[in-house]
Design a protein around this nucleic acid. Structure first.
Lengths: 151, 151
DNA sequence: TCGCTGTAATTGTATATGCAACTACCCTGA
DNA sequence: TCAGGGTAGTTGCATATACAATTACAGCGA
């Protein structure tokens, strides 16, 4: 019976698991964007952060993490790399703990240069996943931010 | 004007980027499952592989990678860790290049034990993302496998 | 002003991920 | 039988990700 139980569990997980599906799509789509951005020496994960910083003007790490549902330690390392490349710079702050950052001129130029690459990947992603996907994802994210988030 | 171009590009990307959204959902959902599976010393990425192996009986790495749209080098490392933990074992093969693997008895026990944890996370994910999400993801994946895949 | 509590970010450690280069092996044709 | 081309996996390297522990600082209350 244990063998049957296992088979049942395995079939259920294989047939329904949300994480398996989301993670698979995430891999495929991330590769699509990373391929299109490679000529610019940029990855989509980094472009996300550049865009968030550009929208915020001066970005506080914790705020960016809230917005992107990203662990602060992850952002810390990513920002570190991007500072080293000259795309981001830290802005002084009265609060000695804070490390707010913003785009450098070089970061702005990179973002502009890479935008056509993003556009190309975005079109491919729409073809692969279907037109309705942006709305479906937005709906899930709205729901996510409503239901209550811990991290 | 360059500033305007930048603003426009940033707004478009922030407002529509499929990758940003998918990656965000992926982080949230992965954390949900990883939290639920932590008591069993298991991560959802590893459970995926256990399940795939369980369904295949004897799994060829390249085949698993096709199925999960996973790079072979990634799987190689993951399987390595899981062999070290005694969950997977390599099956001898006439082809000296092949490294087909399967679940060990310990791996089967772990999968059974962890199934309730998966169930809990799956329910949370449905609440957070909405009921229709599994169908939407399945549709995207079918489309993905139809349109043509390189990796 | 001193100590306590809470907050912001970093650092140590482990896993996941992919590209490029490599190794080991198979098979086929001369 | 052996040389070439193709296939299956692994390894070197870089990035992304999160948890736990730590550091550094702010602010409040006695």
């Amino acid at each position: 019976m244990s063998a049957n139980q296992l088979q049942t569990a395995v079939d259920t997980i294989a047939g329904e698991c949300i994480a398996v599906r989301l993670r698979m799509l995430n891999r495929v789509v991330t590769n699509l964007y990373d391929d299109a951005l490679r000529p610019f020496g940029l990855k989509i994960s980094q472009m996300n952060i550049l865009v968030a910083a550009a929208k915020m003007g001066t970005a506080r790490p914790a705020e960016v993490c809230d917005h992107l549902h990203l662990d602060v330690s992850t952002l810390s390392r990513n920002v570190e790399r991007m500072k080293a490349r000259g795309w981001l710079e830290v802005v002084p702050d009265v609060d000695g703990r804070a490390q707010p950052f913003r785009l450098t001129a070089q970061g702005r130029r990179l973002l502009l240069k890479a935008a056509p690459g993003w556009e190309k990947a975005q079109q491919q992603a729409e073809i692969v996943l279907g037109d309705g996907i942006v709305n479906q994802l937005n709906q899930a994210i709205r729901r996510l931010n409503t239901v209550g988030h811990s991290r």
